[in-house]
Nucleic acid binder design. Structure first.
Length: 851
RNA sequence: GCGAGAGUGGCGGAACUGGCAGACGCACUGGACUUAGGAUCCAGCGGGCAACCGUGGGGGUUCGACUCCCCCCUCUCGCACCA
């Protein structure tokens, strides 16, 4: 063991040992309790960033802790490798997406290895490996058989100049990010997964996931958005057809004075009268120019147009006009809304704008409502009026009564609707899993037969960023014989949304080399569910909901015996950092403004807020530089110590110094006492300072154990070890109890091992242990050493601290009361006052109430 | 706009079920050691002379509120084709 702490040498030594011995490779072992720890796998963007360092440091603490506790821990790592950035790199720099991706993976793998994370690298895979995505194609075919995958028309962002589909992210302020021309909405036939079939199960299971943060479950519940209501048919005037609407407010039916349809509603074409055609066309072309972001956010001006047609309110018999409205969505409910302007704010604004009739049907207590003077819709509860036989009913009761009568008369049905929409998985892009379907002029869409899988993503294509997917231009890929009739046909050129790959990778880690199907049920039965899943809060809804959905699909396809994939979830906060900018040169990297001035012009740099690290804002910290100057252990320690995992982490370089200093301090503490403590025995009984140190040692063991296990309060766990180290330094110079000192130092090394594994393994070896630290297991605390004789009692008068008094540990309430009242400062405060009440909380405080 | 969170010294944070607000670390100040110190060790460190005042702002519940309730402000995340 070297005299001075040299992280570079220590870390290289242990990383080599771990790699050579495949220290973290695991297999199914029925004799041990399993623990599956998973962090969300990274997208191979090129280099790891501080968000990765933090995420994977958090996971590694838990993995190493559980391993030390004796669990058989599966801790895998891989790559979420399909996606847009690879294709963009190809368009901009001519690098093939595969080359770009695999090179990035090589890079990032070595960076992760340099961090000393305890991964079973034998299980590594990338989702762009054929051996991964071919199984996804198989799952798709099974879903197709079951009707869980289907095709329908849906709109996409379309740049007419580039002749290509744009992601929402590629639309800047309504314009194409590459050519800035106006983006339009275009209807395309696309593949969907029927996640709505699972809406009810996904919702009810949110009640059975106690290991998930409440806020994530709440967000998912709202996303699924179950609402009970009723579907009502409004007959078209002079026709046989009815327009079906869904409403949760059947109680307001008598106040429905017009109807709003989604612009994409299938009846639109038939409803438009010749006189209104021009107005409707104009409206539709404006709506098409609003991208999805705008349509779904409510920032845009409520706008609509009259179709020229009318339908009949089924209970009043009144003829009501049918409008198209930009805020009505085809995907939700029936795509048609009965409009009640007096009791719905959106309908109110719409009616005022177009001068439509308003009728009050619910009266609140007090001021009667008058449609002529109302300033906004009344959405509260009240008593029904103008509602025929239902007048006088409370509106909540009327919901049920009206719905029941509609059912009896065959005019409507009670029903449940969800806000959740089916999952569109088609992407008009190259770098993704090819969708295994063939189109034949006579047979239609034909699934690729299982024996013909995989449909391999071809390598040699041209990337221009224009004219749609490169696959569509590759004859050798496109041209194929129809598997059903043998006549010339063409392949599907769309690829899957990359969320599909990340919806089942956790299951593939249990059997990455399995060739009999997507998942080896035996391996999956042993390892799944994931005991602890860790990742960014930004995935609270979409990724986590899709993964839950996919698990249930795989279960129903007989591929997996599991209802929910993740038993416990930890969502970590963002890593942020201050931004700096120069009035003339814009954003500056930290090193370009080291002295508070712009390195280019000397102008004072403007210090911005803490923001999520991003290349565009130039507020990034390169983990490599950090590791080079301080080592991986310091980088890990800081990212864990600076904030609790679920909080956003604000980066500041000075805190890193403190962690580095602490590790030096630990090293010296061991090094300076090596001679003294060699072979020293831990005494059964100790007195005075030695007893205090033993108590501190065991208190720290308990604290760290409880902080890691389930609570994930790593920052306080580390703080408590720092306190123990301070106690050890204070104890030095009292060499009469070397055994107590040895016990304390060894506790520090063992407790820190999950956080800073390299230095701890080295120190453990230096302490003369033949067995590696991993074999020593996790330390237990000795309840006997924790016993205290005296406790400090806080004495308050009217809730304000007036004194403190030391009392025997087991003193009864009366003794505490006496001791409190006798405390000199308390007694002085109480002079001349009447004591009304004395509240005694044993072991904590006494509050004397006077007045 | 809708949904979900967060806000505590100069800074990051602690206070677990309502019970000493500010643990631990950074920064800063002083001291020791030293040829030297940007190393190390020790000590101090919310504001105020004090009574007291202090957990984003305002109200409430309670013997007692950072913690519970109501209103408001600010910031962060998500909003279905970024992953």
């Amino acid at each position: 063991m070297e005299e001075r702490y040299n992280p570079g040498a220590v870390e290289a030594k242990w990383q080599k040992t771990w790699a050579d011995t495949r220290a973290f490779a695991v297999t199914e072992d029925g004799s041990k309790k399993k623990y599956y720890l998973l962090e969300m796998f990274p997208y191979p963007s090129g280099r790891i960033h501080m968000g990765h360092v933090r995420n994977y440091s958090i996971g590694d603490v838990v993995a190493r802790f559980k391993t030390l506790q004796g669990y058989n821990v599966l801790h895998p790592m891989g790559w979420d490798a399909f996606g847009m950035p690879a294709e963009n790199a190809a368009i901009q720099h001519g690098t093939h997406p595969a080359k770009w991706t695999y090179e990035n993976i090589d890079n990032m793998r070595s960076q992760l290895k340099r961090m000393g994370f305890s991964y079973d690298w034998d299980r590594e895979f990338a989702t762009c490996d054929v051996d991964y995505y071919k199984w996804e194609q198989l799952v798709f075919l099974k879903m197709l058989e079951r009707g869980l995958a289907y095709k329908k028309s849906s709109s996409v962002n379309w740049c007419g100049k580039c002749q290509t589909v744009l992601a929402n992210e590629q639309v800047d302020d309504g314009g194409c990010w590459r050519c800035d021309s106006e983006v339009e909405q275009k209807e395309l036939e696309q593949w969907f997964f029927k996640i709505t079939d699972y809406a009810e199960e996904l919702l009810t299971w949110t009640e059975r996931l106690p290991g998930w943060p409440e806020r994530v479950l709440t967000m998912q519940q709202h996303w699924i958005g179950r609402s009970t209501g009723c579907e009502i048919g409004f007959p078209l005037e002079g026709g046989k057809e009815t327009v079906r609407v869904f409403t949760t407010r059947a109680d307001t039916l008598y106040g429905a004075t017009f109807m709003s349809l989604a612009p994409e509603h299938p009846l639109v074409e038939r409803l438009v009268t010749p006189g209104q055609r021009e107005a409707v066309e104009g409206f539709l072309s404006r709506v098409r120019k609003q991208d999805k972001e705008q349509r779904t956010s409510d920032e845009l001006e409520k706008e609509g147009v009259f179709t020229g047609s009318y339908c009949i309110n089924p209970v009043t018999g009144q003829k009501i006009p049918v409008y198209l409205a930009n805020f009505v969505l085809l995907d939700y409910g029936t795509g048609a809304v009965m409009a009640v302007p007096t009791h719905d704010q959106r309908d109110f604004e719409f009616a005022r704008k177009y001068g439509l009739e308003m009728r009050v049907v619910i009266q609140p207590d007090g001021e009667p409502l008058d449609p002529r003077t109302m300033e906004r819709a009344f959405e509260g509860s009240g008593i029904l009026v103008n509602s025929g036989p239902f007048d006088g009913l409370a509106n909540e009761e009327a919901k049920e009564a009206i719905a029941t009568q509609l059912e009896e008369k065959g005019l409507g049905t009670k029903s449940v609707k969800y806000r959740l929409r089916d999952w569109g998985v088609s992407r008009q892009r190259y770098w993704g899993t090819p969708i295994p379907v063939i189109y034949c002029d006579s047979c239609g869409a034909v699934p690729v037969p299982e024996k013909d899988l995989p449909v391999i993503l071809p390598h040699d294509v041209a990337f221009t960023g224009e004219g749609g997917s490169p696959l569509a231009k590759l004859e050798s890929f496109l041209k194929v014989d129809c598997p059903r009739c043998g006549s010339p046909a063409r392949r599907e050129t769309d690829t899957f949304d990359t969320f599909v790959e990340s919806s089942w990778y956790f299951a593939r880690y249990t059997c990455p080399d399995y060739t009999g199907g997507p998942i080896d049920r035996e391996a999956a039965r042993y390892w799944l569910p994931v005991d602890q899943y860790i990742g960014g809060i930004e995935h609270a809804v979409m990724h986590l909901l899709y993964a839950r959905f996919f698990t249930k699909v795989l279960r129903d396809l007989g591929m997996l015996d599991l209802d929910e994939p993740f038993a416990n979830l930890l969502t970590q906060g963002m890593v942020c950092m201050e931004t700096r900018s120069c009035p003339t040169h814009g954003w500056l990297y930290p090193e370009e403004a080291a002295d508070g001035k712009c390195a280019k012009c000397g102008e004072a740099a403007v210090l911005g807020r803490n923001e999520k690290m991003s290349k565009s804002k130039k507020n990034v910290v390169d983990p490599d530089a950090l590791i080079a100057s301080y080592g991986a252990d310091t980088a890990r320690l800081f990212s864990l110590f600076a904030a609790p995992p679920e909080k956003d982490l604000e980066w500041n370089e000075q805190g890193v110094e403190g962690c580095y200093r602490f590790l030096h301090r630990v090293w010296r503490g061991v090094q300076d006492n090596l001679e003294l403590i060699r072979g020293a025995e831990i005494p059964a009984v100790a007195e005075g300072p030695a007893r205090e140190l033993r108590r501190a040692t065991h208190r720290t063991i308990r604290k760290v154990t409880e902080d890691i296990d389930g609570r994930f309060h790593f920052n306080t766990a580390i703080a408590s070890v720092m306190e123990l180290v301070n106690a050890i330094y204070a104890f030095e110079g009292k060499p009469e109890h070397p055994g107590v000192l040895r016990e304390a130092l060894e506790a520090v090394v063992r407790l820190l091992a999950p956080f800073v594994p390299h230095i701890c393994h080295e120190l453990w070896e230096g302490l003369g242990h033949a067995e590696p630290l991993a074999a020593a297991g996790w330390p237990a605390w000795d309840a006997e050493a924790l016993v205290v004789d005296e406790v400090l009692l806080v004495v308050q008068v009217n809730g304000k601290v007036r004194g403190k008094v030391t009392v025997p540990a087991g003193a009864d309430e009366e003794a505490l009361r006496q001791a409190a009242l006798a405390e000199p400062n308390v007694a002085r405060t109480l002079e001349g006052q009447t004591v009304r009440k004395v509240i005694v909380i044993p072991g904590r405080l006494v509050n004397v109430v006077v007045g």
